Simulated scan of single mutants.
Amino acid sequence: MSQTLAELRETLRRIEGDGYQRRPSLPFGVSAIDGKLANGGLRLDALHEVAGARPCLGDDASATLFIAGIAARAWGPVLWVVKRRDLFAPGLYQAGLAPHRVLYAEARDDAELLAIMEEGLRHRGLGAVIGEVKRAGLAATRRLQLAAEGGRTIALLLKGHARDGADPLGQPSAALTRWRVKSAPSAPLSFEGVGRARWRLELVRQKGGEPFEMLVEAPDETGRIAVPARLAAGPAPGRGADAEDVARATG
């Protein structure tokens, strides 16, 4: 009996695994990240949530640029739904998202914003649909996930901090992955100036995989983030903080 059950489990695992791998995905191009994601990247026909780690402008900007880098590497036009006109196009361009690819829509409130996102996902002619909300309940995220399934349009929901101080990712959600982005000290330079921005990137939850956290560098002009070269090469003797980052990055 035990052998029969083991064979049945293995058969189910192969069936489920093959079906999951057939889903289209968008890899980060960073093995330390893609190797930890259940689909080898972000599933395109799915909803993904991102939030700044703290209620501050620095983390909000970092989370926005993280999303911009993902959208930059997606195919086709990008629909970005906002409630106020505060996006800085040159900053998005620096993260690889060219202005001519972005279609902006302005919503009156979260409910209208989520409805516009749902329509954009069902259109099937967009590479990414992005929205910025304070709150989105489980029912709303399920609708976005269902609207995305079967297509190639990635849904990215940027969740802001509410005034009550609640965790933006604390509510139940149908999102396949949930990320926190925290700004970190930039790379030191041998001359006066500011180096490439760095973030503490945390995958809080993912369907079919484990959470993780690592230090990364912000997107370049192609929308690609990177693991700092010194960390990717391995920890240097006597550098405890870097050793911890490598351990998180390599598992």
Rank of each mutant, 00 (worst) to 15 (best):
L26Q: 00
A155F: 03
R122L: 08
R54L: 08
P27S: 11
P188L: 09
G208P: 11
A6H: 15
K182H: 10
F212R: 05
G58W: 09
K36R: 11
F212Y: 15
L44F: 15
R43V: 09
L26D: 00
L138S: 08
V216Q: 00
G208Y: 12
L156D: 00
E202V: 08
G238V: 04
G52L: 04
S190R: 12
E210G: 13
D110C: 06
L57F: 13
R85L: 13
S186R: 15
K159D: 03
D220W: 06
D220H: 08
V227I: 10
N39M: 07
P219N: 06
R85A: 08
P24L: 03
D18L: 12
M117E: 01
D45G: 13
K36D: 05
E217F: 02
A63W: 03
G223Q: 06
A72M: 07
A105F: 03
G193V: 13
L12K: 09
H100R: 14
E7Y: 08
D242P: 10
A136I: 00
G251F: 11
M117A: 07
S2N: 14
K182V: 00
R178A: 02
L231R: 02
M117Y: 01
A115M: 14
G240K: 12
G234M: 09
W179D: 01
A71H: 04
D60Y: 10
A148N: 04
F212C: 06
S62V: 03
A46F: 06
P77V: 01
R248L: 11
R84F: 12
D86L: 14
N39Q: 15
G234L: 13
L231S: 06
L113D: 00
E106S: 07
G137M: 02
E16P: 13
L5S: 05
A115Q: 10
T153H: 03
R198N: 13
V82Y: 10
A162T: 14
A61M: 15
E106F: 14
I70S: 11
L57D: 06
A115L: 12
A74P: 04
A74F: 05
R200P: 03
A98M: 14
R43C: 13
R230D: 09
A72V: 04
A166Q: 10
P90A: 04
A187D: 07
R205K: 15
R85C: 09
L113N: 01
P185M: 02
M1D: 15
D18H: 13
A128G: 07
L8E: 12
L158R: 14
G238I: 01
D109G: 09
P90S: 08
A72P: 05
S190Y: 13
P228F: 04
G234K: 08
L176T: 06
L121A: 03
A233E: 08
A46G: 10
D164K: 09
P211G: 15
E213Q: 14
V204R: 15
Q145N: 05
G69C: 08
L138C: 07
A226Y: 01
